[in-house]
């Protein structure tokens, strides 16, 4: 069982008293890419935010075990330092903080947590430049304020750059493909593939099958009304694309 990265059991959660997750189960092993698909309002994004520890959501039952530890006991920053990374659907703009300073503070927080020496601006520059090259990004990204005035595609690539630096054990990509044109999508997907390592895992949250043409998942889950209704391999995504989500939802209704 040592290769289990994430194990979620019977998770229930609510926001402002409204139940959003209603008995959610998931297990992700090292080296795997999982995709959660589902219609809007199914609870996909909620699940990703709960993993990262967003304060607006209250977990009312069940457990989340990440690398053998109870994730729900950790503060959001401790989760990040332990290796959980959430690429935001809507990355925030922080005028006044340069991207490179933000990345360094974040990178050093993780190094400190791992008992490593923090890097000064000079040494960090070397690290970040190598990632920028790997992701084929424009170096001018670094000197600009975090996400300020970035296009939708640039914001998503900036999320991937952060992921590349922090090298998480579990990378969660929340709607990383929404709002991207096909060229930007290929770049983002290529970056995610380039960062794949056997000891890490990736969870893709998406509404559209299109992304999965470029990032091949090992397991696809279909989510609706706060639960996973069906799991399968990549063919499931194609079937969903052809038949629509109603097909799964109707099957569920008949089964019930």
């Amino acid at each position: 069982m040592s290769d289990v990265i994430l194990s979620v059991q019977d998770l229930t959660a609510e926001v402002d008293g409204n139940p959003i997750l209603k008995g959610f189960n998931l297990e992700i092993k090292a080296g795997e890419i999982h995709a959660i698909m589902g219609p809007n309002g199914s609870g996909k994004s909620t699940f990703s935010k709960i993993l990262a520890g967003h304060p607006a959501y209250t977990v009312t039952g069940g457990e989340i075990v990440f690398l053998g530890q109870n994730l729900l006991e950790l503060e959001p920053d401790d989760r990040a330092k332990s290796g959980v990374f959430l690429a935001f659907q809507y990355p925030l703009e922080i005028p006044g903080v340069s991207n490179v300073d933000f990345l360094r503070v974040s990178y050093n927080a993780k190094r400190k947590h791992e008992g490593l020496e923090e890097l000064d601006a000079f040494d960090f520059d070397e690290v970040v430049q190598s990632k920028v090259t790997l992701l084929k990004m424009d170096p001018s990204f670094l000197s600009r304020s975090v996400n300020e005035g970035f296009s939708g595609g640039e914001k998503k690539r900036n999320e991937i750059l952060q992921m590349a630096l922090l090298e998480p054990r579990l990378g969660i990509l929340d709607e990383i493909d929404s709002g991207l044109d096909i060229d930007a999508l290929k770049v983002v997907a290529g970056s995610v593939n380039a960062l794949k390592k056997p000891e890490n895992a990736t969870l893709i949250i998406t509404h559209y099958q299109r992304l999965l043409n470029y990032i091949l998942p090992d397991v696809i889950h279909v989510m609706a009304d706060g639960r996973i209704l069906m799991s399968g391999d990549k063919d499931l995504a194609l079937e969903l694309e052809a038949k629509g989500y109603d097909w799964v939802l109707e099957g569920e209704a008949v089964g019930a």
């Binding site: 607006a56 990040a80 304020s145």
Partner: peptide, 29 residues
Amino acid sequence: EDDEVFYLQSRGIPADQARKLLTYAFAID
């Protein structure tokens, strides 16, 4: 904003430090 603090926290920056960074950023502009 809670969302701003959370964004920084999700990158490993403790809440207290995140608030200071955001305040600094607001002013330094």
